[in-house]
């Protein structure tokens, strides 16, 4: 008899084991199908909801695909100029030291135009949390080469592949900032498999918890896909990411508190 439970008998509120967090708004996400941004948004909002921190959180949105992050996150947010989110977050956090302040940035925003703001916020040990989504490309502007684009990788501005002789090398900004005394917790995660999603959520929890300690900047890189920019299906892009991005940007904690 138990084997023949109807849909109605199973789909009762008390049996619900997963539903999108209430801190994501009803607005449909503006991201391409299969883009990791959506999952990254969801995890951050899940943690803020679980920690009951909505009233205490101020987020900073970047310029890039996630420029409209504030449309999807049901928290107070400010939209920053391209690359300046760490400076904006610094201004907020210095004046509201008890609030949870985070930035959400892409690789062009954080590691090209905003390198100066990123490095100095890290070096000052600002008590903010940076969520850094690295997909090796400028997504919103149409797939141009990013500071993180892999050698040989084809983009709209490296149509024959990134030639490191003339276009420079990909920047491992996360390893770079992990060397600065002002960073406290630095980790690299991904959100493309259930196991990786679970690990990434734990890392996000730590990066939010640690801000309360006032020990420095907490930094979570999420290596992600850009199936539109990479010109692949979502499933192909995740496979390509595993085979090409992860060897160059290996997952795992880079700096953990002693």
């Amino acid at each position: 008899m138990q084997d023949t439970l109807t849909n109605e008998e199973i789909c009762k509120p008390e049996n619900m084991v997963y539903h999108r967090t209430a801190l994501l708004t009803e607005a449909p996400l503006s991201y391409c199908p299969g883009c990791g941004h959506g999952t990254a948004h969801r995890l951050i909002m899940e943690v803020i909801e679980e920690m009951k921190m909505q009233a205490n959180t101020i987020g900073v949105a970047p310029v890039g695909c996630s420029v409209l992050a504030y449309d999807f996150m049901d928290i107070d947010m400010q939209q920053a100029a391209h690359g300046r989110a760490p400076a904006v977050a610094t201004g907020i956090k210095r004046l509201y030291p008890d609030k949870f302040v985070f930035t959400y940035q892409g690789d062009g925003d954080l590691a090209a135009i905003g390198t100066c703001e990123t490095i100095h916020a890290c070096n000052r040990g600002e008590n903010i949390t940076i969520f850094f989504v690295n997909n090796g490309i400028y997504g919103m502007t149409g797939g141009q080469m990013a500071p993180t684009t892999l050698p040989g990788m084809k983009t709209a501005t490296s149509p024959f592949g990134r030639d490191v002789e003339t276009m420079g090398h990909p920047l491992k900004i996360t390893e770079l900032i992990a060397n600065l005394p002002g960073t406290y917790f630095v980790t690299r995660q991904s959100v493309h498999t259930p196991a990786n999603v679970r690990k990434a959520k734990k890392a996000i929890e730590k990066a939010i918890q640690y801000q309360k300690l006032n020990k420095g900047l907490n930094f979570v890189e999420i290596v992600s896909n850009c199936n539109s920019g990479w010109k692949m299906t979502p499933l192909e892009s995740n496979k390509w990411m595993e085979e090409n991005m992860f060897p160059f940007y290996p997952l795992g904690d880079i700096k953990v508190p002693k």
Binding site: I10, N15, M16, V17, Y18, R20, L24, P28, G38, T39
Partner: peptide
């Protein structure tokens, strides 16, 4: 990515 699935 779109939080479209609810599980019971």
């Amino acid at each position: 990515p779109d939080g479209a699935i609810t599980v019971y």
